[in-house]
Design a binder for these strands. Structure first.
Lengths: 209, 209
DNA sequence: CGTCAATGAGCTGCGCCTTGTTCACGTTGC
DNA sequence: GCAACGTGAACAAGGCGCAGCTCATTGACG
């Protein structure tokens, strides 16, 4: 499909002239590019997210001649597909896989609250079928209620234990994984972690438009 | 920018109701996703290309637990930004680089017709600024005229020589390429390469609609 | 406005993508 | 219909994105 064909499809869907459809297509695309060019992130739920990304200068290679080439720092547009688009593209295969995963989770983790997400997953996949949705959404709500109640109680207790476990696991796992790197990088990693958290905070702040 | 804001922008640009703009946005996005889901590639010149890509099954890792996870083969949507979008996002920085490149080309290849593309490049980058465009388009036209005059003369001569070269190159290049393919299969790497080539050939074939 | 769903962040290791250059083919706008 | 422009393919090395999972925030729709 090229632009002209997209315009045809839009014209048909909107029952408008090709000219009007063409203007619509242009307006949408220019709306997206304009915002990204302006430094904005364009999040179209289900479709995907467009944003610009900084690329530092680097030494690349002219594959044809093998010659090294210095590539200047640049800002490039990037797109990340939304989950709905991904699921749609992945099609029936994904649906089947989801069902399997759902069943697997339900069986493996009945004692856990994963029953709730499993039910949700099922509800999600069943969304196209309204009748099924009605039934399952009822079940979901019931399960959800229980999950919520459990969750509240579990969360507090788990938070403490999780924090302890997390610390011990990380402390244990990293030195093992990086013996060669020895102890010193552990400090650096911790420093990075701190910085990362700060950065995250900043991002969260910056994120609020 | 989120979807609602894009709808606002489209409504304003098209001077239509938000409802109409919303339908337009949906129609465009659904037009794209629909085609990609149908296995089609959507090439929107200047904006970019959406297509689906096959991802073979692989062993990935749950980053949190480190546990290995088998990820099933999947089909994912991907997007590659068009050159105009890239240039626009990269903005003034790119313009400066383009000028350098342009000057470089002009200097290095005065004897060649690359002077014409250089002028084109300059005209292209100057497009956003109307005043600048006027001035530069004048220069461009002048340059273009010369280029055209040169081109006409050069083209005829070059066409013959190019045709010969092209033929000889292709004839020479293909058997050579296939020879190496025939010899190389001794290695696994080469086998992969061969497979890739075959896939490429198929793609090229499939590409002709 | 409220509810539900989508999204993003964070974690580690591996596969995909990007970069420049040239040429041939395809698309777009006048 | 044609000129001008855009796109894709091919090449090698480094950088980026994604897998699962949880939680918090945000967005969309009724």
């Amino acid at each position: 499909m090229n632009k002209a064909q997209l315009i045809d499809a839009v014209a048909e869907k909107l029952t408008v002239s090709r000219r009007a459809a063409g203007e619509a297509v242009d307006a949408v695309l220019n709306g997206i590019t304009g915002a990204v060019v302006g430094g904005d992130k364009v999040s179209l739920t289900g479709f995907g997210t467009f944003e610009s990304a900084k690329r530092p200068a680097r030494i690349a290679r002219n594959p044809r001649t093998g010659e090294q080439v210095k590539v200047a720092a640049a800002t490039v547009p990037k797109f990340r597909a939304g989950q709905a688009f991904k699921d749609e593209v992945n099609g029936a295969k994904k649906t089947a896989a989801a069902k399997k995963a759902t069943a697997k989770r339900a069986a493996a983790a009945a004692a856990k609250k994963s029953a709730a997400p499993a039910a949700r997953g099922a509800a999600k996949k069943a969304t196209p079928a309204k009748k099924a949705t009605v039934r399952k959404s009822t079940a979901t709500k019931a399960a959800g209620s229980r999950g919520a109640a459990k969750k509240t109680a579990v969360t507090k207790a788990a938070a403490k234990s999780t924090a302890k476990k997390t610390v011990s696991k990380k402390a244990a796992a990293r030195p093992v994984a990086r013996k060669s790197a020895a102890v010193a990088p552990a400090t650096k990693m911790a420093a990075k972690k701190t910085a990362a958290k700060k950065a995250t905070v900043k991002k969260s702040a910056a994120k609020k438009r």
